[in-house]
Design a protein around this nucleic acid. Structure first.
Lengths: 125, 125
DNA sequence: CGGTATCCGCTCTGATACTG
DNA sequence: CAGTATCAGAGCGGATACCG
């Protein structure tokens, strides 16, 4: 029999989707996969993230228990970020998505071109 | 040696993230995991999605070659949607995320409460 | 260096109304 | 039933300026 719990709306799945569905969250987690990184290093890894968005994303991740923040009170300040064990459990998921990208993104691109050729009104790039 | 290609900005990973990072995309794909579904059925599976957002998401998914749309020209109209083979390759990824939710979402909740207790200014729920 | 605060545009999203 | 069109509001996200 089919599970009846699938009316997808209310479960934790949805909440987790909200976490990962941010523009930057996945990228930041992925940037930290190799271990602890200072704020500036994370920023240079992602490059086109703004300071505001990086800080905001990091703060949210910290709140969710996915990242730890460690301040070393020296001048100038040193702030390190690292994934928590909980945060690290998301890595396989991110890697899987990355593999998917390598394997299938070309197909998506083709599909878009084909679609746009037919529907003739697109200008997405 | 470490791969130098990791400056995460420009690769397909990023583009794929854009696909999945929509509020509804993952939910719609997931709704279609069991096979073909009519428009109204999808809507009832997701429940709190608006007509506009469902249509928009479906159209985007079709453009990306992840979903096929089949119109049966009768009155009243019947429109069926199904995942393409390409779309189906995303399912393991979605299931993995769902498993993660079941396993770890409680931890996230706890972390939030702890964080909010300390930072005292939150009111997210 | 690693933030915080503010302003502002733009996109995403949801109601509502209408069509075939 | 399955859309399309339009409008208005909320929030995202970037640029800029300032602080410890």
């Amino acid at each position: 029999m089919r599970e009846p719990d699938i009316s997808i709306a209310e479960c934790s799945y949805r909440r987790v989707l909200e976490i990962v569905s941010n523009k930057w969250t996945a990228l930041v987690i992925y940037a930290l996969e190799d271990g602890t990184l200072r704020y500036g290093l994370i920023k240079s890894r992602i490059a086109d993230i703004s300071q505001k968005m990086l800080t905001q994303t990091l703060k949210q991740l910290e709140r969710d228990g996915l990242v730890v923040r460690k301040v070393t009170p020296v001048v100038p300040p040193v702030v390190d970020y690292a994934l928590t064990p909980l945060g690290r459990t998301l890595l396989p998921f991110l890697r899987m998505l990355k593999d998917w990208s390598s394997a299938h993104y070309a197909s998506v691109s083709e599909a878009r071109e084909a679609y746009d050729a037919v529907h003739q009104d697109a200008s997405h790039g």
